[in-house]
Design a protein around this nucleic acid. Structure first.
Length: 516
DNA sequence: GGACGGTGAAACTTCAGGTTGCCTC
DNA sequence: GAAGTTTCACCGTCC
């Protein structure tokens, strides 16, 4: 590090001073914030003081606004920052917006990015300065100091190998006493030991089933041999503990009928408890789907129940919402508590998951899953991103992330239903997946079969009486072109339906699926 | 006297992220 | 713990 550096203290906010100074010396900085909201706020505060203006940035801001069919408040806020040469970056941005921000930072157009740890984790985006505003983060147990490893992740972004001979990682301390402590614990601190994640039961049972399903292990002896060589076992003192856990898992998998045990040629005669294991058809599929066996089992129970009651789309949306895979769920805010409970009362008879009693600890998480299901439900009712932000406090990027996981879970559930020969459920879920991915009501499904037609264009056609493929065939190209605001795509659609159209296009234009 | 509107302080809430899974309907 | 949001007491104004 380059010894003592003095920064002009123009404002009372240290990270603001540092950011402005970074721009002054014509460098770039990442400012790491604690929460999405504070990342946005930080970017906004800096934006007010940069004094930067450029056509290039305005153009970029316009692009950021056009990412969704209708910009959300978040999009507008980001665009305002970008016009001034700053940006915020967190999981709430759409993929496209993240790319735009990252690329223009690399190109030097955006000077400062205020971000959550999202940027420290995956993206390779070095800057001259890494400004770390707070080394504490809110957890379930209150405000806690983050691990040294995470600090290193953030600090490691400082210095661009091909541009700077060094970089500056700066922690902002609240007081002199704090400064000492932070320096000792973080700058001089030793990174924590890495612990094997295998020991977590969901991971272990998934892995175990997969090993058996692929035939990689057959007997309990082989299973123990295998796990004894893992990092997990390496960190454990006793194999006894390991064996107890594995026995428990094997029992569970057998109870779920994902595996069967038997005595065969692999069973050594002297050890009667050294049984041979193989996966059932169902178990093999669960392993292929990479599903947590417990989730798979819960799905199967729910699917059986679904054959007996009147199901709605929300039934399956809720089923996938109540899984560990979809966590963290949308949280029920205090003010929403009553409302969510009312909704639960309304839909309760259509749910395929057992409702815990209000006194059980998992009840809150259950209500969260109901809220999450309601969010999906609104999405397939064509509510737009701004409405989702308003009603559920969920940002565009988070919507996409949740939908992707839900889609995979629904696919998996449909596969399990198929193996159980519940054909009606398979087709119900297939329809639901399509609706979820496009965010549309059922009536638009026929139109979505066409390439380049997503929620927005399909709705535009439908609103004007073009409701299915037959209507599309009958309608003149010009009508379609006017409705979807693209001549090129209108022609392409006609061609998809085998109808000849004379080419009138002079310019090339890229068609896009109307999703985020 | 009462309804209304504006203001500011106090009380109350909320708070990061992401890996692969599957198949292309 | 800090920042954003809501609530509420208080005050002045108007009818």
């Amino acid at each position: 590090m380059a010894g003592h550096v003095t920064i002009e203290e123009k404002y009372s906010n240290p990270s603001l001073n540092l950011a402005i100074d970074t721009i002054r010396i014509r460098k770039q900085a990442l400012v790491f914030a604690n929460t999405k909201m504070s990342a946005e706020r930080t970017a906004e505060d800096i934006a007010q003081k940069t004094g930067i203006n450029s056509a290039e940035l305005n153009e970029l801001a316009d692009k950021v606004l056009k990412v969704l069919s209708k910009p959300t408040r978040q999009c507008e806020r980001l665009a305002r920052c970008i016009r001034k040469g700053t940006a915020f970056h967190h999981a709430g941005l759409t993929q496209k917006q993240k790319e735009l921000v990252e690329d223009s930072f690399r190109a030097g157009k955006i000077r400062i990015i205020a971000c959550t740890p999202s940027l420290a984790m995956g993206v390779d985006l070095p800057a001259f300065r890494s400004i770390i505003r707070d080394l504490r983060r809110y957890t379930r147990h209150g405000l806690r100091y983050i691990p040294v490893l995470e600090y290193l992740q953030m600090a490691g972004r400082a210095g661009r190998p091909s541009f700077d001979s060094f970089g500056e990682a700066i922690i902002i301390a609240a007081s002199e006493a704090d400064k000492e402590k932070l320096y000792r614990n973080y700058v001089l601190g030793e990174p924590e030991e890495i612990y094997s994640k295998l020991a977590v039961e969901p991971v272990l049972r998934t892995y175990l089933l997969s090993l058996i399903a692929t035939g990689f292990v057959r007997s309990k002896k082989q299973i123990l041999d295998f796990f004894s060589q893992t990092f997990w076992a390496h960190q454990r003192a006793s194999m006894d503990e390991l064996e107890i856990i594995i026995d428990k898992m094997l029992g569970l998998l057998e109870e779920f009928e994902f595996i069967k045990s038997s005595m065969d040629e692999f069973t050594s005669a002297d050890k009667l408890d050294d049984l041979s294991y193989r996966a059932t058809t169902l178990g093999r599929r669960v392993a292929e789907l990479y599903l947590d066996p417990l989730t798979a089992h819960n799905f199967l129970v729910s699917i059986r129940r679904a054959t007996k009651i009147h199901i709605l789309p929300v039934s399956f949306l809720h089923m996938v919402s109540y899984t560990p895979e979809l966590r963290p769920l949308l949280r029920v805010k205090m003010k929403e508590y009553d409302h969510i409970q009312e909704e639960l009362a309304k839909y309760g008879e259509h749910l395929v998951v057992n409702e815990p009693s209000a006194f059980e600890p998992e009840y809150d998480e259950f209500l969260n899953s109901v809220k999450t299901a309601l969010f999906f439900s609104d999405w397939i009712d064509e509510k737009d991103e701004e409405q989702m932000l308003e009603k559920f406090s969920i940002r565009p990027g988070e919507i996409r992330a949740k939908i992707e996981i839900a889609d995979w879970l629904l696919y998996s559930a449909a596969e399990l239903a198929r193996l159980q020969h519940f054909r009606k459920i398979v087709s119900e879920i297939a329809k639901l997946r399509l609706r979820l991915r496009y965010g549309v009501r059922e009536e638009l499904l026929p139109l979505l079969k066409l390439r380049s037609i997503g929620r927005v264009r399909a709705r535009a056609l439908y609103r004007n009486g073009i409701k299915d493929i037959g209507d599309v065939k009958k309608a003149p190209v010009a009508t379609i072109a006017a409705l979807i605001k693209s001549r090129k795509i209108a022609q392409d659609i006609k061609e998809q339906l085998g109808q000849k159209v004379e080419k009138t296009s002079r310019r090339k234009r890229k068609g896009q699926k109307g999703l985020v």
